[in-house]
Computed example of a mutant assay.
Amino acid sequence: MSHEYTLIVHTSPVDGREDEYNSWYDDVHLAEFSALPGVISGRRFKVVSPDPAAKAVYAAIYETSVDPAAVFAAMNEGIKAGTVHMSDAIDPTSLAVTTLKPR
């Protein structure tokens, strides 16, 4: 199955909760999001900053076979149904999503 879109999702942990954030993302969220209909794969990265005092920023890169709106709709349905679990260790103000489509 080839991918139609690539999502780059940047997030940061709430101050003082980086270990909890990483545990949730690595052990829960990455697998749950990657299992959503239309998601082909997902990987996580730590963004390297030249400033050692900079707030931690992480990126997840997902490949999807469907429009990202459908993936996020499935995620929201999963949250309502209790099959997708979110964490309050993620700083909601840090969320930034970039959608890429191959040319």
Rank of each mutant, 00 (worst) to 15 (best):
L36P: 04
A54P: 14
D91Q: 12
S23H: 14
L36H: 01
R43P: 01
T64Y: 02
G16F: 05
P52W: 04
T99H: 09
L7P: 05
D15G: 06
G82F: 09
I90F: 02
M75S: 12
S49I: 00
V84S: 02
A31M: 08
I40T: 06
V14M: 13
T98S: 08
I79P: 05
G16A: 05
E20N: 08
G42T: 11
A96W: 07
V28E: 02
S34H: 09
T6Y: 02
D15W: 09
P52T: 08
D67P: 08
S41H: 04
G38D: 10
T11F: 04
T11W: 01
A53R: 13
G42P: 03
K101T: 15
G16M: 03
A89G: 05
I61A: 07
V97D: 11
S94I: 10
V47P: 00
I90H: 04
V47L: 09
L100A: 13
V71F: 12
I90Y: 00
S2I: 09
V14G: 06
G38W: 10
D19N: 14
K55C: 01
A31R: 08
Y25G: 05
S2K: 14
A89M: 11
Y5H: 15
R43F: 00
L30I: 14
A53K: 14
S65G: 03
P13T: 03
K55T: 12
I61F: 03
V28C: 11
D91R: 11
R103W: 12
P92S: 07
E32H: 07
Y62C: 01
S87L: 02
G78W: 03
A53S: 15
S94V: 11
